[in-house]
Design a protein around this nucleic acid. Structure first.
Lengths: 145, 145
DNA sequence: ACTTGACCTTGCCATCATGGTAAGGTTCAG
DNA sequence: CTGAACCTTACCATGATGGCAAGGTCAAGT
């Protein structure tokens, strides 16, 4: 009963930032968004972070790395904390995000394909003639309506 | 000599918006960025747009649709107007943008692939157990450094 | 004890392209 | 003369992040 290692750590925001991979600035921002409930303070006003807080920050970091928005992450954190959650509700959020990613990927691929084609057509030399500019300047793209 | 159709049009900003597919709001914004040189005004202060202005707006619209940033578009418009441009300089901008798109696409595909895998592993039922949350909460993702 | 550097605090501004809103002037049709 | 549909400018919001400024605190070295 002498050692309770994980409980009394009390890290500063800088240490919390290093341990979670989130910048100190963003740690404060996430707090203002209500993602970190009730941040403890020392007498001097410094924030102090428990292992549980660090874990939450790592959760947020991982979620951001997967492209979730702060709103989605807010919901995911709530579900994570809620023992009566359903995996269906988590899956729904993830699926919606994946769908959004797919749409954005497809839109960007279409841009890239068009660009690749135009780039391929362009000599890229000292002359001014340029199929890329011709495409951009072509009135053919204006929606008729 | 009676008809000179393309020269004397003098469109309002609303008409210019319709003809170019750019919102009136953005037309003003592009002007403030210096993309539309010297916008003529009527006596009452209304902006008036020539066919040349419309063409520029269509050029900008097409460039935006291909994902170019306003900074890039600013350069592209300059090159477009410059008879002494080289196609190489245009190609360079387009290639840099395409490269950027590719990086972003790859990053998003990686997110999507991870998500797709996790979603596939999740039952999506009434129980709380969820591989998606387990992944997000896993400390395995924290860069050891 | 004092200085120095590294940390912490809050608050404001900037990004990027776009939309919204407000408050007011103009034009045109009924 | 009135109302709708336009135009004007100016300000605020988005979303996630970075930067800077001005000030308080702490710990280590002199």
């Amino acid at each position: 009963m002498a050692d309770v290692p994980a409980a009394a750590a009390a890290l500063t925001i800088g240490e919390a930032a290093k341990r979670s991979g989130v910048s100190a600035k963003m740690v404060r921002h996430y707090e203002s968004l209500g993602l970190l409930p009730a941040v403890a303070r020392r007498l001097n006003g410094y924030r102090q972070y428990s292992e549980r807080d660090i874990h939450t920050l790592q959760f947020i970091k991982r979620s951001r790395d997967l492209g979730f928005s702060m709103l989605e992450i807010s919901e995911l954190v709530s579900l994570w904390r809620n023992r009566r959650r359903t995996s269906a509700s988590v899956k729904r959020i993830a699926q919606a995000h994946a769908d959004g990613l797919n749409k954005r990927i497809e839109a960007m691929q279409e841009m890239r394909n068009t660009l690749t084609h135009l780039i391929h057509c362009c000599h890229g030399d000292q002359r001014p003639d340029c199929p890329i500019l011709e495409d951009l300047a072509s009135p053919a793209h204006v929606k008729s309506h």
